[in-house]
């Protein structure tokens, strides 16, 4: 029983990280219909920048995360400006390849600049606490709480502010948004900024319990794709729910099925879903 609860909590932690990554991915997909394969590289860059800020510049954890959000967000904006914007009229296969190019570059860059070895990130929240007889680390609690807070802020931003509404409008209908005077270019840049920021938050939060290395984005991005297909491409609640579903099934699968194959679970999910329903679960009628 205790193991079960412990694993459920682990699932909650992993799920929070996945949900944050998937949110960024789904926002970009909703706006530009681009499956951003380079999103995992943004996640990785976020981890490294936070780490560098902390170790080399001695910034506090939170301040380092803040810098990381800004830098990775700007990186996202640059990507939109210089790569995806010029490709907006090209056949869909082109921006996938372009995104792969960015991914390869950023990974090689990380390996070149920071080295290939695994690095661990120090955290001011390494204490172990006992809650209801469970031993938890503060960092894990922090991940869950911070993720929920970020999601809540994002929700408020999208639903209650004018700028947020323009993002929703554009994801519903790009031309319509343009017609009513929304600057779609600005919205696209803003979306990439938010998407990069979310990736940076996710990696900075999870890095202390995992490790920082050039390939850290690989599995996470693949799972994020699974999640947004699970929750419907472009759907924001879908990304959150999907993130937790994958997180829980992974941590439970690792304990009760096989630790070796736990990474496959998410992919089997995807294969099953797309086999049964090729357009993904909860896809809007007629959308791709």
């Amino acid at each position: 029983m205790e193991i079960l609860i412990q694993q459920l909590f682990n699932g909650l932690t992993i799920g929070s990280v996945y949900a944050l990554v998937a949110l960024g991915l789904t926002l970009v997909y909703g706006i530009l219909h681009i499956p951003n394969f380079a999103h995992g590289a943004l996640y990785m860059m976020g981890g490294y920048i936070t780490l560098t800020m902390m170790t080399r510049f001695g910034l506090h954890y939170w301040l380092a995360i803040f810098v990381s959000i800004i830098v990775v967000g700007l990186l996202g904006v640059l990507m939109e400006r210089f790569v995806f914007h010029p490709l907006r009229e090209a056949p869909p296969i082109h921006d996938k390849i372009a995104a792969i190019g960015i991914l390869l570059f950023l990974e090689a860059f990380a390996q070149f600049y920071w080295g290939a070895e695994y690095q661990s990130m120090p955290t001011p929240y390494g204490q172990i606490v006992e809650v209801f007889g469970l031993t938890l680390t503060m960092q894990r609690i922090l991940i869950v709480v911070a993720a929920v807070v970020v999601m809540f802020i994002l929700y408020l931003f999208l639903k209650k502010t004018f700028t947020g509404a323009t993002i929703i409008a554009m994801s519903q209908n790009r031309e319509g948004a343009n017609l009513v005077g929304i600057n779609t270019n600005k919205v696209a840049m803003l979306t990439f900024m938010i998407s990069g920021g979310l990736a940076a938050i996710a990696s900075s939060l999870s890095a202390p319990i995992n490790l920082v290395f050039p390939g850290m984005g690989h599995l996470v991005i693949l799972k994020a794709f699974v999640i947004i297909i699970l929750g419907g491409m472009g759907s924001i609640p879908g990304a959150i729910v999907g993130g937790y579903i994958v997180g829980f099934s992974e941590s439970l699968g690792a304990t009760y099925i096989s630790n070796d194959y736990k990474d496959i679970i998410a992919f089997l999910f995807l294969v099953l879903i797309l086999t049964v329903k090729p357009t993904g679960l909860f896809s809007k009628g007629g959308s791709h």
Partner: peptide, 10 residues
């Protein structure tokens, strides 16, 4: 090669 890939496709 990464940037080359991206530039080529553009």
């Amino acid at each position: 090669f990464g940037p080359a890939l991206t530039l080529l496709i553009i």
